[in-house]
Amino acid sequence: MKVVSSILVLVGLAAAAKEVPPPGPDGKYTLTAPGITAKFIPYAACITNLIVPDRNGTLRDVILGYDNASFYAVDPNHSDYGAVPGRYVNRIKDHTYVLNGTRYFTEANDGNGTLHSGTNGWSHRVWNVSEVTDHSITFTIRDEGNSSLGFPGTVIGSVTHSVGNGSWSTILAAHAVDHLTPLMLTTHPYWNLDAFSNPDTDLVLNHTLSLPFSTRMIGIDENTQSTGALPSIPKGSINDFYSKPKQIGASSTDAAWVGNCGTAGGCAGYNNQWLVERNESQAGLPLATLSSGWSGIKWDLYSDQPGIVVYSCHWMSGGNQLKQDQGGTASNGFVRKDGCVAVEPQDYIDGINHPEWNRTKYQISGPNTPPFSSHIQYQFSTI
C-alpha cells in the first residue's frame, strides 16, 4: 500500500504544489517518533541526522553529515552523505550501455566508469518538498532527458522518508514519462553506531555485520567495475558474512583485505555488492544487521531489493568534519579511513549491461512499463 501511495505522488507532481511549512532554524526538517529523531534537507533528499538512544539511554547521532545544511551543495568531498542517488545508482562499466539497439555514453566520473549517474545525478540536485508531517516528508524531482549525460527521457521521482517506533523507512518511486531509460534508486547513509564517541576507536572495524542470505556477490575487476560473474562466497572467507555475524575488520589481517574492493587503487576492505537470495518464507526477514558492542545500538535492515552494497569507507581521507554532537577522545573531529560504513539495498550493479542476469525488466522503465518502486527500513534496538 505504501508503494502505491508513492506512485500516486508521481501522478500528482505536475499539479500545483501544496504549501508546505519551512524548515527549522537549522535549515532542516525534523521528524520525530518514539525512540528516534531524524532530520532532512531538500538537497539530494538527504537525511542529515538520525538520533537514537544507546543501551544506556544516551542519545547518539549515528549517521554522517553536517551541521550546516547549506554546506552539502558545496562540499568539495561530496560523499553522497545521506543522499538518494539517481536516476541510476552505483556503477556503469566503461560509462556506456545499449538500450533497444542504441548505444548511450554516460559521464565517466569514476575512472572509466560512471558512478551514481555522474556529477549532475540526483544526489547533486535540490528536490521539491511536496508534503511534510510530524512523522514523514516527501521529496519530488522532475529530471529532464540527458540532464545527466546519456540518460534519455523525462523521469519523475518521489521519495518519502518516515519515522515510526524506533524506525526509519523510505519509499522510493520513479517513472519514465516518454522514453525507456535506466532507473535504479537507493538511499546512501553512512553509519557509525558509536557516533565516533567510543574512547578506544573512532573506526567501525569493531561493528558487527550479518548478511544471512548473501552467499554470492557481484564479481568485480581491478577498477571495482562488474565483470559479469556472480561468484559464490567460500565459507570463512573475507566476504563471508552469512555463516555467522562478524566484525567488519575481522579479516583486516587477511592477505585478501587489500584489493578486495579493487586492486587498481589498493582499495582495502569492502566496496562490494552481495546478492540477497531468500525464499518466500524468508521474504519478511532482515537482509542485514549491523550492531556495535560499545554503544549497544543495533539496526535490522528490511528491503525488497535483491542486493546490498557495503562500503567500509576506505576512501575517506580525513577531510569530512563531524557534527558537533559527534566525536570523543579517540576522534580528531574528522572522518578517517574505515571510520564509517555505507549500506545500500539495490538491484544488481550494472544490470543494464548484463541481460543474462534478467534484471533489465526491473532496471529499465518507460511510459508503458511499471514504475520503479522500492522500500527500505532500518529498525533500531539495543543489545
Rank of each mutant, 00 (worst) to 15 (best):
L115I: 15
Y362C: 15
D338V: 06
S147F: 14
V155Q: 11
I156D: 12
I36Q: 04
S317W: 07
T263C: 06
Q282C: 04
S303E: 06
G228N: 03
P212H: 09
H135T: 15
R278E: 04
I47W: 07
L10T: 05
L99M: 08
A264K: 07
L211A: 12
L149P: 05
V132T: 11
A174T: 12
Q363A: 11
V132C: 05
P199W: 03
D94M: 01
G24A: 07
P306L: 05
T369H: 00
L59H: 07
K361F: 03
K361Q: 08
N90A: 15
G269A: 02
D26H: 15
T382Y: 06
T187R: 11
S79L: 14
P85E: 09
S226Y: 15
N112Y: 07
C46E: 06
T133I: 01
D75H: 09
I308P: 00
P34Q: 04
S210T: 04
T224S: 02
V309D: 09
L185S: 10
T329D: 11
A83R: 02
H354T: 12
V129G: 10
N112K: 12
N165C: 06
I248F: 05
D178N: 12
C340Y: 00
H175C: 05
G236F: 09
F213W: 10
A268C: 09
L322H: 01
P76R: 11
T227S: 12
C46N: 12
I41V: 13
L301S: 04
R142K: 11
I51Q: 10
I376S: 00
M217T: 09
N49M: 06
R91N: 08
A255E: 12
G296H: 07
D254I: 14
G265R: 14
S292F: 14
H116I: 06
L8N: 08
S117C: 02
P367S: 13
L290H: 04
A250N: 03
L193E: 12
P189W: 06
P76T: 12
N146K: 07
I308N: 00
Q363V: 01
T133Y: 10
I364P: 15
N332A: 12
S251G: 11
Y104S: 05
G121S: 08
L203D: 13
S303W: 00
S147Y: 11
F380L: 01
S158W: 00
H188P: 09
G101M: 11
I349G: 03
G265T: 10
G265K: 12
E144V: 02
P306M: 02
T224H: 01
D240L: 05
D347T: 14
N239C: 04
L205Y: 02
V62P: 03
T369V: 04
S70W: 04
G35A: 03
G328N: 09
D304K: 10
D350C: 10
